[in-house]
Amino acid sequence: MKAEATQAPFAEATALRLVPALLADPSVRIGGGILVVIALLGLFAPLLTPVDPSYLDPTTRNELPGAASTVDLADGKTADVTHWFGTDQLGRDLFARVLYGARISLLVGLAVTLIVVATGLFIGLVAGYFRALDGLIMRMMDGLMAIPSILLALALVALWGAGLWTVIIAVAIPEVPRVVRLVRSIVLSVRGEPYVEAAVAMGTPTPLIMTRHILPSTIAPLIVQGTYVCASAILVEAILSFLGVGIPTDIPTWGNIMAEGRLLFRVYPHAILFPGVFLAVTILAVNMMGDGMRDALDPKLQRRL
């Protein structure tokens, strides 16, 4: 009386074959589209504005969005520009700063995701397959998860000092346990599947069982979890910078721009609103991709992720 529907439609899929199915989902397309636009904005920022994001001009402080002024360019020439997003309290062009800020956010998101997924996958496989190490590893992960992630990142950054890589590592560490748990739970459930037992009975060596029969089951959930890690990383980086302990203030990041806009917020809200909107939209786009992929890959994942 077993229904054939127990097979997930993408069960046979390997990583590459997932792509068309993922792109068929509207959330993935919208989220992905927004991300591509933001990435392009960051990448081609020098083409979109001639202004250096750290160029100060004391005569044009706190200009409202749309104001025009003449700025000095890096090559010694001057240019008349419109400050689309206005300027900050030091007279820097917010449009340029927000565009360059996209680079940091996306870089942090990507780097943290790669580090977390790789580390989490490795530790999770070890914990799931080698029962002797499982208890110890999982207790350590429980302990790490007991420290709220922003606090942990704050403490690490406070000790190590601000810096791009410090922030990336500090943001990554609290995210690892969740991936470990996910991978481990998949390994444990797949290990009991008859097809894995059949492989054991056929004398397939353990490393081959891992890579051939168990690892592929983790791909889809890891892609989904990876996007959530990415969204969280972008958010936590922005929070750290906003609180003044993240990326050094001379680098324009959305968090830094907002931190600098705090003092005069009541009068000049644009210094906080523009980077804020970019930040929110970016995280929203990543989350939409995550949700869309989860629904496309396996609706049953809803509760686990």
């Binding site: 097979q7 046979e12 390997t14 599947e193 008859p194 009975a201 004398g203 051939r212």
Partner: peptide, 18 residues
């Protein structure tokens, strides 16, 4: 191992779907 082989109850879970 090769001398003992086993066939399981649930044919839907006995073959690696991938």
């Amino acid at each position: 191992r090769r001398h003992v082989q086993i066939v399981f109850q649930d044919p839907y879970r006995s073959l690696n779907p991938r």
